[in-house]
Design a protein around this nucleic acid. Structure first.
Lengths: 216, 216
DNA sequence: TAGATTGTTAATCGATTAACAATC
DNA sequence: TAGATTGTTAATCGATTAACAATC
């Protein structure tokens, strides 16, 4: 196959494939089949083959997929084969925690700037980065070619920060604040709010004190 | 309607509804229609009505939904109308950040214990909680009736921590480590790994240096 | 009564899975 | 050649949306 419009579900699985492939690569395993991948990632092998086939013929019949080659291909599809700079807005505890993940992101994606509107925080160090005031955001985004913004500010400030990021020309946002952001459709937004995650988990708890109609 | 088996997509929307309803309630807005909800949450009104109808007839034709009543109902569906204690494993930066969200979780869900395997960290305070050693986990989980575990340890330790949590009788896990956990099917696991989130975002960046076949 | 909005059925759309010819 | 595994089509399954009678 080749292109068509790719669904978000497919795109979200690619980083998961990549992560496991990197793991195989570290262990110097040269080849992997869709069946092995499916087993480890808890996915249907046909789904994995189909996902990959959207982007090209990466496998070899009878053999499977060459690990380093597939890594290269997925990195290219995800645009991780070019430097992607990321700005972090909100230098609180969560922002601080995320800034430590630069090592994890390795590849070419990197948090290169941190901003906060709280005056006393400006100028302090967060790992190797110095917290900048919000009014430097637009300039820094332009200078460093920053393309993705991470929002880790309190919920009341999140929309305002999103507006500023978009105004500065950012292309995508990862939003940790528990609000739905209003954004133009060209700007991709992913919600990363752990409180809704946790609340939806509660649904799956076995029945507690309250009696309920249906078990699971 | 009433019951049937509810899809995960539906369950994941419920906390989003709840969050917005709480907001309306704070602003003392007494009634809301599926259309208004849909507008604010970027969802189809029919989908919202259908989601809610799985659990009961909560609305009034011609009127809409009573905000406090619907809040009560959704809280009940999500089991947030009973105390749910949560354990946090991993007292690093991320764990520290999450422990601040107790206020956000308000309701009845609460992080009540923090564990870490790193000896020097044991005994230190994280907000109001004292970091406990891993070998106290099973006991504390039992004593406090903890039902959900949050994993914020490095990826190599995550599976081991998951095993310990499950062994102690935990019912659900929110996993921040970038690995796929092997768990029995009765234990619900949600992945909250922000690195895969960020990598999938990169896919949606406008074309960069590399030429590409299809724009967006 | 006229207007609004639900709950629900039917239609549509999209995603997952099964099956298999091609081929290494 | 026999066994393995891909890429892809067709079948299935599930989720979203449209439409509308019921009714406030």
């Amino acid at each position: 196959m080749k292109s068509d419009k790719i669904s978000e579900a497919v795109v979200r699985r690619l980083p998961v494939y990549l992560r496991f492939l990197n793991d195989l690569n570290r262990r110097e395993i040269a080849t992997v089949s869709s069946q092995e991948l499916g087993q480890r990632l808890d996915l249907n092998p046909a789904q994995i083959r189909k996902d990959l086939a959207y982007f090209g013929d990466f496998g070899r019949k009878g053999i499977g997929y060459d690990v380093p080659y597939l890594i290269e291909k997925i990195r290219h599809i995800l645009k991780l084969d070019q430097p992607i700079n990321v700005a972090l807005v909100g230098a609180g505890n969560l922002g601080h925690a995320l800034s430590n993940y630069n090592a994890y992101l390795k590849d070419t994606m990197k948090i290169t700037a941190v901003f906060d509107s709280y005056q006393p925080k400006v100028g302090t160090k967060i790992n190797t980065l110095t917290v900048q005031p919000m009014d430097e955001l637009a300039n820094t985004v332009r200078e460093q070619g920053i393309r993705i913004g991470i929002i880790t500010v309190p919920d009341q400030e999140a929309q305002n920060v999103a507006d500023i990021l978009i105004e500065s020309g950012i292309e995508a946002i990862l939003n940790f604040a528990p609000v739905i952001l209003k954004t133009p459709s060209e700007v991709r937004v992913h919600a990363a709010d752990f409180t809704t995650d946790l609340q939806s988990l509660a649904y799956y708890l076995h029945e507690g004190k309250e009696e309920e109609v249906d078990g699971q």
